[in-house]
Structures are given as C-alpha cells and as structure tokens.
Design a protein around this nucleic acid. Structure first.
Lengths: 227, 227
DNA sequence: TACTTGATGTGGTTGGACCACATCGCCTAA
DNA sequence: TTAGGCGATGTGGTCCAACCACATCAAGTA
C-alpha cells in the first residue's frame, strides 16, 4: 500500500462515517501529515486525486474560500476520465454519442412533470429564442439537456450525462463548423426542444424518448459524425 | 494554471497527437520535470491523477514492468469516482442500481449473437454450475454480466457498467447476508442467466432486456435494498 | 560455464524551505 | 473614539536535495 493511498483511505473512511460531510473542511495538509505520520507530499498527492474526482476543492489564503473543503461534483470526475480515454482513442466518440442517446431518451421517458428542472428547461427555451450568438446558444443547449436529465430524478444518470457532454465538448466547434446552415439548424433544434417538452408535459414518455433520440442523432448526423 | 495541470495538459496533448499510445512509456519523472522546467513534485502529482484515471500505471524497478506506461482502464476511474461520491451520500445506491438496470437491459437488447463475449458468458455459465463457494459464484456472476455488456459492442457502456458494479461492490456482502436462502437464490440466478442467454441467441432482444431487468431488480429486492 | 556482485535507472518517500494569498487584529494617527 | 494601515498568522503551491526499495543488466569471478 503506497503512502498516498493510506491517506486516501483515511479520508474515504471519514466520508463514509459521516465525520466529513459536504461543505466540511479537511485538516490542513501539515496537520493531516503529522496526524497520519506521513509526509506532506503524500497528503498532497491524495488530495490531488480527490480534487480530480470532484470530491474536494482546494483554496489558498484564509477564511471563506480557504482550505480544502468537501464538495460533490461527480460530473467533472467522470468527464475528465472519459475525455482522457477518448484522447487515447480507446473510447470512440460514436460510443459516447450512442450512450448519450441511451441515457437521455431514458431520462425523457421518465421525466417527472412536476420537477423543478423541467420548469428550468422551459425557461431556457425562451432564452434560446433570444440568443443570437452561436456559442451562447450552445451553452444554453447544454443546460437544457442537463435539466431534462435531472427531471428524471436519478443523480447517477445526470452525472453521467453531464460527463459525456463534457468529454466531447472539444468537438463541439468541429461539429457546428460542419453544418451547412447554422441558422436553419438552430431553428430546427428549437422546434424539436418544444416538441420534447410538450410530450413530457402530456405524460407521453415513449414519444418524448423517441423525439430525444431523433433530436440527438439527427444533429450529429447532420454534423457529419462518422458512425 | 497550477503547475501539475500544465504537466497534465502536456501529457494529454501527447496522447491526443498519438505520440503516446497504449503500452507506450512516459519519460522518466526526473527527465519530464527537466524537460517541462517544473519540479519533480508537480510531475508526480500529474501522474498520480492519470493513475487514478486509469490512464497510466507506474512501476518501480527496471525493465518490463518498470516506468510509467500508458494503459486504458476507464472502469477503475469511473468506479473510484462513483464509489467516493456514494461515500459522501451524494449518489444514492438505489440510483446506481437503477442505472445498472438501464444500461444492462439496453446491452442485452443490443447484444450481437456472434460476439466472442457471448461465448465467454456461456462458458461462465457452466463454471457457475460447479461453483460451491458463494464468493466464487459472485465473482463469476460479475464477469458474466460484464461479458453480457461487452457483447453490445459499446466501450462506454461496458466501462460504465463495470464501474457501477465496482462502486457498490462493498455492499455485496451485505446483500447476500440478507438473503433468506442463498442456495435457492443461486439456483434461480443460474436459471435466469440461461433464459437471458437463450433470448439473446434467438435474437429476441426485447425479451432479453426484460429478463435482465427483472433479474437484477429481483435480486436487489430480495436482498432488501430500499428503493 | 555458472554464479555472484556491483552499477544503473526506475518510482516512492521524506524534510525543509520559500512563495503567494487572504484574513484577522493590533497599533497608530487623525 | 474612530478610521486606516500594516504586520502576524495560517492556508495551499512549488521547489529542491536527499535517501530508499526494487528490478534489471553487465562485469567480474570461481
């Protein structure tokens, strides 16, 4: 067992036991090192991993944002992992897209009408009508789809959805560049978003799922993603 | 930009550019530090993260297993991340199980009959008949379900499946302890496995998906998982 | 030829030092 | 008394130099 893993295990135990909770603070690196009788380097390596996993956030200085505090951001962890493995060509982009369709259509079929996330999605729809900048539109599109996923009420699916999106975000520019007519595409996307929301509102989960699948697959097909 | 992130970025670029490929070796830590004009500490922090992400494996000594080599193990990365967030109570176990049902039934519906993974699954079925030890049975059960997922031919889904399994592995003992009659349960699981494989062989994807969903949900329900 | 033994190179770990930063509280001057 | 400044304190961020354990390889030796 390497030293930093010992530190990792100690922290994970603290989390499991509820002695470290969301928003809580880890002991200062120097204190933790002394307490566990390891070097500060090893403590830092463990914290670096937890940071990459979206479990903690390290901040310098004093007071409010200082110290190493516990957060809960599973999305970045999964996103970074997926992105790195896409970089090694071990995870095909087509598989990412396929998985996204799978998760998102499931979420659409299962979305609860009374979910606050759904209200947020509807609000985003209005904002997207006013958006003129392509990048601004895409940013809201991301949030719209994430809100849709959240409406299903499954935290794991939401996190995975977000991470899939993040993993191929660097390709977004390439995709839009391949589109023959962005304005036309944007108009179509808006219309499809409305249809999806309408289907969910009418409790027609099956139709919502089909619409979402067609929505996503249609976009990537138009953008020329080889599959 | 923190120093270790610079190192991380450099390595990720090397991966994307194909200058570092699977099985390839990173420069030695001291060399890399000198080359990028950073301290060895920062290089090590970056490598620690990549290691946690399942992108590299570090080995001491000389020769074959020595040095830091590029691997491709997305499962452990996702698994660790999920496990940690389960520890913080931010990801409910019920959501993990639900996601597993979702992914695995999709995979069953989409499994290709000619997949080598399916052959492996069939072979595991035979071995499970001979297994007497509970732990041994469970180990093969994990591999059976992973083989099923691989038969669908989507690397992302396979990785996620494996990670979900890993994230709740520590609960496996609790689940089996809750079962009233392990032998009866094991017999049922074996029979259900056979049905699932049969459905796939007959190209009845829809039935296979239903069977898988009932198989998993039935097990956790019997084991008393609150949902 | 077979075996020992040292050289070499790898990651693993440690302690100490210094920096940048943000806050808190004392002290000074108005 | 009050307002401002300014140093003390504690945080993570970075770097350096040294040493360890380990695995291999090559030279030397019996």
């Amino acid at each position: 067992m390497r030293t930093h893993q010992l530190v990792l295990q100690w922290i994970e135990n603290q989390l499991s036991a509820g002695e470290l909770t969301l928003g809580g603070r880890l002991p200062a690196e120097r204190m933790l090192a002394e307490q566990l009788e390891v070097s500060r380097t090893s403590v830092r390596e463990a914290i670096r991993i937890l940071e990459a996993m979206g479990v903690v956030r390290a901040g310098v200085g004093s007071g409010k944002d200082a110290g190493t505090v516990v957060i809960a951001d599973p999305t970045t962890a999964l996103g970074s992992a997926l992105r790195l493995h896409v970089a090694t060509s071990h995870l095909p982009v087509a598989d990412i897209v396929e998985t996204r369709v799978l998760l998102e259509s499931w979420a659409a079929a299962r979305a609860r009408t009374d979910s606050p996330a759904l209200t947020e999605a509807a609000a985003l729809l209005e904002q997207m009508d006013a958006a003129v900048d392509t990048e601004e539109f895409l940013g809201m599109d991301v949030r719209f789809h994430l809100a849709l996923a959240e409406a299903a009420g499954n935290a794991v699916v939401s996190a995975m959805m977000g991470s899939l999106r993040e993993a191929i975000q660097s390709y977004a520019g390439t995709f839009t560049a391949n589109l023959p007519d962005w304005d036309a595409t944007a108009a179509r996307l808006r219309a499809e978003h409305r249809e999806i929301l309408a289907a969910i509102s009418h409790n027609d989960g099956a139709r919502a799922a089909d619409l979402v699948a067609a929505h996503i697959e249609g976009y990537y097909k138009e953008a020329g993603l080889a599959d």
